[in-house]
Amino acid sequence: MEERGERIALQCRQHSASCREFSVRCQPVQLRSLSAATCSVWLAAYWLFVLTQNSMVLSAAIFITLIGLIVYLHFVKIDQESLLVIASLGIQMTSSYASGKESTTFIEMSQVKDVVINEAIYMQKVIYYLCILLRDPLDPQSVSEVVPLFQSSKPRLDCLVEVYRSCQEILEQRKTVSQIL
């Protein structure tokens, strides 16, 4: 379950001892809300058309809905967010949009300091989120940047704890390696 009460699914795949992938699948695009938005725009356009007798309004409305739909599917609606942790290489975050576009960020292990669960005030409530702490290259002890994970799906705490435990297991491996070397 998500913060807002929508359903999400967490999938955890273990490719090998040092490589795990977590993917959070959000609720798919709701046909009802989309059609409601389209209908409201078209009704408003039709009302304007009746008032002004100008057919430009109708074609403009069609264009607006089309462009809005494309923008929504391509840039706003995130279908799935996944986190790939490879102990010796790094952490990769992928978010795939409803249109199929994927945006990927890869953080090398040497930059990662830790993975923690943080709490933040969001609107009127306190939410928990997972984030990666990046190491400052000038001063290895301090944190230079905080990269939040699962930003759009916002899973609840119990889900986050599970991901956090697995991540920590893999990060532990990295630490033992550095001790040996």
Partner: peptide, 10 residues
């Protein structure tokens, strides 16, 4: 900007 990895079938 960087690289991305894809896990292949194994």
């Amino acid at each position: 900007a960087g690289v991305k990895f894809r896990v292949l079938e194994q």
